[in-house]
Simulated assay, not measured.
Amino acid sequence: MIPLYYKKQIRYVKNKACLALFLGLAFQANAQESKTVKVNFGLIYPLSTNGTRAPLDTNDLSIHLLAGVSSVERGSAFAGLANIVRNEAKGALLAGFSNHVGKEANGALFAGFLNTYRSAKGPQFAGFANLAQGEVRGAQFSGFLNATGGDMNGVQFAGFANIARNLNGNQFAGFANVAKRISASQFSGFINVAKDVNGSQFAGFINVAKKVKGAQIAGFINIAETSDCPIGIINIIKNGEKSVASTIDESQTAMLTFRSGGKHLYGIIGAGYNFKNEDEVYAFEAGFGAHFFHSQYFRLNLELTQTTLESFKYGEYFKSTLRMLPAVKVAPWLEIFGGPSFNFVTTNTAEGLALHPANEKLVLHTWQSKGSDFRQSLHIGYQAGLQFVF
Rank of each mutant, 00 (worst) to 15 (best):
F337S: 02
Y273Q: 07
I206E: 04
N50D: 13
S200F: 00
K16G: 08
L47C: 10
W333Q: 11
T366H: 00
A54N: 09
L19F: 12
L81P: 02
G219L: 08
D151T: 12
A358S: 09
N146K: 02
I231L: 14
T49M: 13
L65Q: 00
E225I: 09
F312Y: 15
G96C: 12
N168L: 10
S185V: 02
G270M: 10
L61P: 06
E250N: 05
Q124T: 01
F175W: 06
H356T: 12
N115D: 10
Y317E: 05
L322G: 13
L386N: 02
N50S: 11
T58N: 15
K319Y: 11
K263H: 10
A254G: 13
L309I: 12
L131A: 09
T257M: 04
G232D: 10
K242Q: 10
K210S: 05
I217A: 03
I223A: 05
V193S: 11
G289A: 00
P357C: 07
W333R: 13
A184E: 03
G91T: 08
P326C: 14
F388E: 05
G287I: 07
L23N: 07
E73Y: 08
I206L: 10
P230E: 04
Q383H: 01
T321V: 15
Q306H: 14
R181W: 03
I237M: 05
P326V: 13
G287Y: 07
L302T: 13
F258R: 00
A54W: 05
D373C: 07
V85H: 08
L109Y: 01
V212F: 00
E104A: 13
P3L: 05
A158M: 04
G204R: 07
F337E: 02
A384Y: 00
R11A: 08
A111K: 09
N274M: 07
R11H: 03
V155L: 06
E285R: 14
K242W: 03
N192T: 12
P3G: 09
S34T: 13
L4K: 02
I234A: 12
N83S: 13
F41H: 00
S369C: 00
L304V: 13
E104C: 13
